[in-house]
């Protein structure tokens, strides 16, 4: 059987495992007495560790307070009892009258004490809860911030790579377009050159004809001039 590692069990014991892994480890525990024994041992040690609790610093002055309060209450009771006994012995005072005089005062005193205790306990637990709530929220806020930053980073990276890819594609298409334009220009130039050549040849042929005619005319003129010159002679 493949046993999970001790590191896995540590995450399991301190509840740092995600739900699927936890379920898997729990399932393994049901079938593996060896791991179960190891885990029980560690759990026992974890419980034993709780025996060493340090005194809270602020608690040092607080511990005597309830005892002090109840001490005063006890002294008060003893005092009234003593006074009552002395009174009853000396003058045989009316019990009802005495009870009527003492009980409301005692009741009021006790109620006041109780109220104060309840209020103190209430405010203490409320402060504790507020603190816990605050810590929890702060933790979540931190987690949320970290997660958002990580998500933003991932998104930025994705956008950048997309941008780079698009840019590559654009550049490629630009290059193609430029090539096509250049080819077209080249063809155009070739065509222009050919037509120019043709025109020049035409001009040359025409000019040749012109020259020929001019030559003929000059010859004719020379001939006529010569004929006229001999006739005059």
């Amino acid at each position: 059987m493949n046993h999970p590692t001790r590191e896995d069990w540590m995450s399991y014991l301190y509840e740092e495992t995600d739900a699927p892994a936890r379920a898997e480890l729990t399932a393994h525990l049901h079938n593996c007495p060896e791991c179960q024994t190891a885990l029980d041992g560690w759990r026992g040690t974890m419980t034993a560790l709780q025996a060493w609790q340090l005194p809270a610093k602020s608690g040092r002055n607080e511990t005597w307070r309830p005892f002090f309060k109840w001490g005063i209450a006890a002294a008060l009771m003893l005092g009234t009892g003593f006074a009552f006994g002395k009174f009853a012995g000396a003058k045989a005072l009316n019990m009802e009258q005495l009870r009527g005089a003492l009980i409301p005062a005692l009741r009021q005193e006790l109620r006041r004490e109780l109220n104060a205790d309840v209020l103190a306990a209430f405010s203490e637990s409320r402060a504790g809860l507020t603190n816990e709530f605050r810590q929890e929220l702060r933790g979540r806020l931190d987690q949320w911030t970290t997660d958002s930053i990580a998500a933003a980073n991932v998104e930025t990276r994705r956008l950048l790579s997309e941008f780079a890819q698009n840019r590559e594609i654009d550049q490629e298409s630009d290059r193609q377009a430029t090539l096509v334009a250049l080819r077209k220009l080249d063809q155009q130039q070739r065509a222009d050159y050919a037509s120019l050549l043709q025109k020049v040849e035409t001009v040359a042929v025409v000019a040749q004809g012109g020259f020929q005619e001019t030559q003929n005319q000059i010859d004719q003129l020379a001939f006529y001039s010569q004929a006229k010159f001999s006739a005059n002679k």
Partner: peptide, 22 residues
């Protein structure tokens, strides 16, 4: 991982130290 293995070792050693006592 090293932290976890140290933790496991610490708990194991403590089990050995505390088991007879407790």
């Amino acid at each position: 991982g090293t932290v976890k293995s140290r933790m496991a070792e610490a708990l194991t050693q403590l089990s050995r130290l505390l088991a007879p006592v407790f």
